[in-house]
Structures are given as structure tokens and as C-alpha cells.
Design a protein around this nucleic acid. Sequence first.
DNA 1: TCGTAAGTTTACCAAATGGTAAAAAAGCGA
DNA 2: TCGCTTTTTTACCATTTGGTAAACTTACGA
Lengths: 213, 213
Amino acid sequence: MPQAPAAQAGRKPSRIQLRNRKRILEAALEVFSTHGYRGTTLDQIAAEAGLSKPNILYYFEGKEEIHVTLLNQLLDAWLDPLRAIDAQGDPLEELMGYVRRKLKMSRDLPRESRLFANEILQGAPRMGPHLESVLKPLVDQTAVVIEGWVAQGKLAPVDPRHLLFSIWATTQHYADFEAQVGVLMGPADVHAGAVAHLEALFRRLLTPAPTRG
Amino acid sequence: MPQAPAAQAGRKPSRIQLRNRKRILEAALEVFSTHGYRGTTLDQIAAEAGLSKPNILYYFEGKEEIHVTLLNQLLDAWLDPLRAIDAQGDPLEELMGYVRRKLKMSRDLPRESRLFANEILQGAPRMGPHLESVLKPLVDQTAVVIEGWVAQGKLAPVDPRHLLFSIWATTQHYADFEAQVGVLMGPADVHAGAVAHLEALFRRLLTPAPTRG
DNA sequence: TCGTAAGTTTACCAAATGGTAAAAAAGCGA
DNA sequence: TCGCTTTTTTACCATTTGGTAAACTTACGA
């Protein structure tokens, strides 16, 4: 079998392979994130990557494999800020740090945010299992930590999962709804305003009432 | 010219026309909201509507017209809760009422929310002008009202636009990211929890500090 | 430098898809 | 019930699109 690095089984990838797979994924991220899965054509990805369509299919088995590769790769990076929450740290500062990291990701990696949003919006057809196996355990674990903090009185009472939803929603909004934000905010420094606003929003929510007696 | 109600110029629509246009839009909402614009085919809409494809094209000029009709119709309904904010009312209660109405819409009309999210995610290619001409003026106007409330000390200092973004993001999240919320919350009563959580979140943000002196 | 494997291109193809033409079938006012 | 209009169906079509076959070119170790 003279060819088939698409499904390379244990083979160590060559330098060219490494470079071209990276190029393709970068191009695919660009196109998928703005047009969605069905709205993206292999020709667009090929053009963006500077490769021919059959050449793309030399490195990946098909459109779907590119998409899934991108999504799973992404989810992992996406969850790093959540993993970085330290159960031993100061509760309020840990969570506020998380908010800031998520907001920064939204600004620096808007394409990744939109790719993810697109997938979830359509019911996570290519990602469902991954959400169950990767996202859910991590969230369950984080929920326990947050509940512990609340029980210790170091955090105002809050439902951990709804808190996470709020953080995700508000931070990713600036990437996912950029088209709308742009219309409504003009050329102002959106990010700086967002940082200040979300700082106030979550700090007020989470700061525990001073205990008396 | 024996046919052309698609571009009916001033003609009063027949009963059949009214019924079928409604059917088509309902079917299109269902399909567009779950598969996006490019992911939707006329055949799918036709099947969902119980009509043939050419019959669909008898009532609408094409796929794009259906989509645009749906979007513009939707934006109008979508903004009703915002229009309902009463500048003369109690600031905190007006805004909390707005939060509740938005959350209710997210629960009752998730398809509409997702249709809108899909469009904005992709850069609002078929809606840009409408955002400028309909959404922006209304938001500008609301921003003035909120700023007035803040100036009067009836509301904690807050950037009106970022506040609106937070409200939209958190409430619509339950519709737009339902696939994810479902994975993480199981069969629990998500809505009730969301109401309580967002009530706390925004009430704490907006309640002004008691003035002294 | 030569031979083999890796990588790339050219030329296709079948299916899907948005849309059309024109005939057939209902509706409906008089 | 007749005749005209509205509505619906049948039969197509051109383009796009994911994907393939096979020839051709390049890289690289011996």
C-alpha cells in the first residue's frame, strides 16, 4: 500500500506531514468558524491552505475528520482555564481569575469560540460523546469544589453549574456575537469595558455577605 | 402573467396563500434553526411543511427570501421585551422584569433564539442592515434611559450596553447551548434554577449601594 | 545517483441541491 | 355549471460538492 497517511496507524509523521496537517487545520478553523460545517467546502479549505483539494484528502479522510479533529483539539485547550482553578486558592480570586482568562480567550481566540458555538448550536452532532467524556467529569469535579467553598462561607451561595453557564455565556458572547457587538459599540475599546463590567458582575454575585456574630 | 404570488405586489393574499406561507415559515424555522442556512435544503423545508419543493418556490422567490423573512420577522418580536422597558417605572424592577421576560422567551422560543444566534455567529450576512436600522436605535435609546437611572442613583453604576450584552448572553445561553446544558444538568428543572440564579446575579449587580450622608 | 516511498496534480464522477418550465388540477365568482 | 385564476405536480436542468483514480513529481536514504 503505497499511500495512506490520512489514517496513519502508529507511523511517525514526516516533517512535511506535520507542516501540512497544521496548515490544513489552521485553514479549516478559519473557514469552519465563519461558515459552519455545511457552509464550508473542501475547496475553500484548500484555497485557504494553499493546497489542492485532493491533497487535503491525502492528509485527512474527509471533511468530517477535519472538523472532528479540530473540535476535539479545541475542547481540550478550551478547558485549560477551568482545570487551572485551584481548590486550595482563595475562592473569590480563583473564580475571578477564571473569568478573566475566559474573557482573554474570547478576545484572542474568537474563531475557536465560534467553531465551538456553531457545533453546540446544532446539537453537538459531532461532539456529543466528547462532551460527556471530557467536559462533564471536569464540570462535576469543579462543581464539588465550588460547593465546598460555599459551604465554608467563603463564597455567596450559588449554583455552581449556573455560575459556570453565566461565565461562559458572558465571556464568549464577545466572540460569538461580535457582529452584533460591533454594530452596537462602534470602534470603542470593547474588551476593556467588558473586563470592568464582568469584574463587577461576578464579584458582586460571589462576594459573601459579611457574617455577623 | 398567470402566476407570481411570491412577489405579490400589493395583492391581498388568499386564504390558501396565508396558510401555506405560514406553514412554510414554521417549517423553515424548524430546519434553519437546527441546521443553519447552508445546512438546510429546500427539500427538508418542503418535507417538514408537507409541500413539494416547487410549491415552496411558488410562495417564496428562493431559499434566501425565506430566511430573510424569518429573520426580520423574528428580530421584531425579539425586541418587544426591550421596548416594554418603562423609563418611568422603578429602574431595578424594570430591568429584572426584562431579564425574566428574556429568559422566558429563551425557554418558550428556543428555535427563534438559535436561528438568530446562527445568523450573528456567521457575521450577520443577511441581517446586517436590519441590525443597524432596527436594533441599534432601540439600544441607543435604552442606553440613555439606563444612564439616566444611574445618574439619579437609582441603579449601581453600570455600562448600559455591557449590561444588555450580559442579559442577552446569559438568558439566550439556555436556548442556544441547550445541547451542552443538557449534558451537564441532566433532567433537572433547568429553567427554575436559571431564574433563581439570574435573579441573584443581576439584582446584586444593579442594586445601588445605600447612600450615606 | 539511483530507486523507492512520500507527496502532488490532473482529470474525473456521482450525488445533492437550488431552481425552472409547463402541464395538470383545484378553487371560485358569475 | 362554465370559464378563468390560483395552486400543485411532474419532469427536468445546471451547478456545486465531496470524493476517487491514476499519473506524475519530489524527497531522501543507501
